[in-house]
Design a protein around this nucleic acid. Sequence first.
DNA 1: TTGACCTCATTGCAAATGCAACGAAAATAG
DNA 2: CTATTTTCGTTGCATTTGCAATGAGGTCAA
Lengths: 151, 151
Amino acid sequence: MTETPHVPDFDLDGFTPYRLAVAAQKLSEQLAKQYRVKFGISIPEWRVLVHLSRAAGNVAVSVRDIEARVAMEKSKVSRAASRLEENGYIKKTVNDTDRRLVHLSLTDKGRALMAELLPLAIAFQQEIAAQLDETMSGFEAGLDRLLNEDE
Amino acid sequence: MTETPHVPDFDLDGFTPYRLAVAAQKLSEQLAKQYRVKFGISIPEWRVLVHLSRAAGNVAVSVRDIEARVAMEKSKVSRAASRLEENGYIKKTVNDTDRRLVHLSLTDKGRALMAELLPLAIAFQQEIAAQLDETMSGFEAGLDRLLNEDE
DNA sequence: TTGACCTCATTGCAAATGCAACGAAAATAG
DNA sequence: CTATTTTCGTTGCATTTGCAATGAGGTCAA
C-alpha cells in the first residue's frame, strides 16, 4: 500500500560499491589530512612520491609507468609531477634513449620528505590493522578479488 | 647499498587505504558508466535518487538528511538535487513547519527512472557477490569495522 | 628516406569539487 | 519582545578533474 509501485526494494547500506566508496573516502581523508596540513601534499602527489620512493632501486620511472601502476589518469600524474618539481621534491629529465619519456626521480629534498611521510603511513596502516583485527585477512582476501579480477 | 638512506621500505600494494581507493574507484566507474550512458545520471545524482527511493515510505527528506546519510557535502547534494529537479526527476518543496528545510521527493518520472536503474544496481551487486564468493562475508565484516568505527 | 601510424606527456577547456560566505529562518537568551 | 546564536540550503570562487586535442618523438613499411 505504498505509493512506489514498480520500484524494487533496495538498501544503499547493503550496496557494496557504495560501502566501499564511503570507506575509501573516509580512510583517504584521514590520512590525506595529515600530510596536507603538515607538508602541503595532495593525494595525487603522495601517490607519485610513494611510487618513486618504491622504485628507488632505480628502474626508470615515466609518467606512463605511474599512470599504469597507480590508477591515475596521465594528466593527473603529469600535473602532480609538475607541482612536485616546482617544490623541489622531484626532478624530471628526458630519457636519452627515448626522448618522449620523462624520467622522474626523487631529489634529496624529496627523499627527506618521504623519510617523514612514510612513517605516518606505516603507523596508519597499523591502526587499520588493529581496527580490522581478526577480520583483516578476510577483508584483504576480498579486496584482492576485487582488484585482480580483470575488467 | 641502495641510495635511499633513511627512507623506510613501503609497499603501496600492501597499503590498505590505497587498495581500498582503487577498488572503490573501479567498482564505482563500472556501475556509473552504465547509468551515465543510458540515463545521463552522475554518481551524486544516483545517490540522491536512491536515498529518496528508499525513503519513499515518506519520511520527509531534506538536503541535510541526505548529506548525513550519504556521505556527501551539502553543496554537492544541493547541486545534484538541482540538476535532478531541472530534469524532472524530483521536486523540491518548502517544509511548512520549518521553512529552512527543503523537502525532496521523487516525481513519477523519477520513480520510473528508478524502476529502470535499480535492477542494474541489483544485478551489479550480484556480480560482485559472485566475484567475492566465499570471501564475501569476511570482506563485508571488515568493511563494517571500517565504516562504523567512529573517528 | 619518406610518409602513415603510434606513443608519450602536456595543455586547453568545460564541468565538478571543496570551502567559505551569505541570506533566510528558527531556536535560545536575556 | 528583542538580540544573539545556530541551522539550513544555495552560491561565488578558486582549484581540481576528465577528456580531447596537440605536438614532439618513435616505429614500421614501402
